[in-house]
Amino acid sequence: MLDGYLRRHDGVITLEQARAAGLSHSGIQRRITSGRWVRCARGVYFADDRPFTDAARVRAAVWGYGPRAVGSGLTAAWWHGLTKFAPEVVEVTLPRDSNGRKRQGCRPRRRDLHRSDVTEIKGMRVTNLPLTVVEAAAIGGGGAKLMDWALQTRVDLPTLWQAHLRHKGRHGAPRARRLLRAADSGARSEAERLLHGLLREAGITGWKANYRVGGYRVDVGFPRQKVAIEVDGFAFHSRVEEFQVDRVRQNGIVLLKWQVLRFTWLDLVEYPERVIAVIRSATSA
Rank of each mutant, 00 (worst) to 15 (best):
R177N: 05
L15T: 12
S284R: 15
R178N: 09
G140C: 06
N210M: 06
L195K: 08
E201C: 04
K84M: 13
R178A: 09
V240F: 11
G43T: 02
L255R: 15
D97A: 10
A176Q: 04
H196R: 09
R7N: 10
K226Q: 12
V218D: 01
S116I: 15
H9F: 07
L151V: 04
S26I: 04
E192G: 03
R109G: 04
T127S: 07
R217V: 05
L82P: 07
S116C: 13
A209S: 13
V90A: 11
G27F: 14
M1P: 13
R212F: 13
L266T: 13
G233I: 10
P174H: 13
V118D: 03
A144E: 12
Y45E: 01
I204W: 10
A77N: 04
R19K: 15
A20T: 15
E190F: 01
K84E: 15
L129V: 04
R280E: 12
G206I: 06
V90Q: 14
F85Q: 11
V218H: 02
V231Q: 00
Y5E: 11
C106L: 03
R177C: 05
K122I: 04
F85V: 14
C40F: 01
S281A: 13
Q152R: 15
L195C: 06
L129E: 07
I229V: 12
V245M: 08
S26V: 07
T83C: 06
P174Q: 14
L195W: 05
R170I: 10
V92A: 01
L180V: 07
E190C: 00
V245L: 09
A20H: 15
R166P: 00
A202N: 10
V213K: 07
L82V: 11
F263G: 02
T264P: 04
Q225P: 02
H80D: 10
R177G: 02
G197Y: 01
